[in-house]
């Protein structure tokens, strides 16, 4: 990490600050509002779950928070940088240094082995010894013996563990997870979410997770729910009741 990033991380400002975020997509006939006036502040080291039904706009919100796309209105500030003011390449650079991803459908490259998949972000950020770091992480997620296997030779749970190793490889300050257990059975799902939570705690990463799994959401420090593009933060009590 450079000195510049050190000074950033010691900063007290919130990790993520969302102000009046609105997102619309133009269809052939009319415009569809996906997100409406979202305001949100997430502090360093916090873990946050955004819960909502399919089509509620939660994945779009995650994408905007991570800087994969720019909003129609409002602004997203990620670790001090206003995303809509950055160029495509600057956003890419920001992602490669500070952001990690875990996807519902794993998104491993089928032609690459587990090791190579984990090395990918390290190589993109120009790391000198991507090999050693990737091995270490795969050992950590329990796949030390499966380094040279391709995604096709791994089960769903194993694939997601590779994806988690990849997400932590670049030592991100914030990790975005989109339905990380959505494609897994209950038991595997809880194994994977245990791993995710543990690593998150160990590394001190800020975690933003989108899910419809209330049980998983309950393991996060804060929960938000989203419905028809409007975000609200229920009181912790209500959230606890929902879990019980």
């Amino acid at each position: 990490m450079s000195d510049l990033s050190e000074s950033y991380s010691q900063n007290d400002r919130p990790m993520l600050k969302v102000t009046n975020l609105t997102h619309r997509v133009s269809l052939e006939t009319d415009t569809l509002t996906i997100l409406q006036g979202v305001n949100l502040e997430i502090n360093r080291g916090e873990s946050v779950a955004i819960v909502g039904r399919s089509g509620s706009g939660k994945t779009t919100l995650l994408g905007l928070l991570a800087g994969l796309d720019t909003p129609s209105d409002g602004q997203v500030e990620l670790d001090g940088s206003v995303i809509s003011q950055l160029s495509e390449d600057e956003r890419a650079k920001l992602r490669s240094r500070r952001v990690g991803f875990v996807f519902q459908s794993f998104q491993l490259l089928p032609a690459l082995t587990a090791l190579e998949n984990v090395m990918l972000p390290l190589e993109l950020s120009g790391s000198e010894k991507p090999d050693a770091k990737a091995r270490e992480l795969l050992e950590r997620v329990g796949l030390g013996e499966r380094l040279s296997h391709t995604p096709r030779q791994l089960s769903g749970g194993e694939q997601q563990r590779v994806a988690i190793a990849r997400a932590f490889a670049s030592e991100p300050v914030v990790l975005f997870a989109d339905e990380p257990t959505g494609n897994l059975d209950n038991r595997t799902g809880s194994e994977v979410s245990d791993l995710l939570m543990t690593l998150n705690r160990e590394q001190g990463t800020t975690l933003v997770m989108v899910t419809h799994d209330e049980r998983l959401a309950a393991r996060c420090g804060r929960q938000f729910s989203i419905e028809a593009g409007v975000l609200s933060e229920p009181s912790s009590a209500t959230a606890q009741e929902a879990v019980n």
Partner: peptide, 13 residues
């Protein structure tokens, strides 16, 4: 697919 993933992971254009 690979290109999209590389961009998501922070590969510059």
């Amino acid at each position: 697919r690979e290109g999209a993933l590389l961009r998501t992971l922070g590969g510059r254009q």
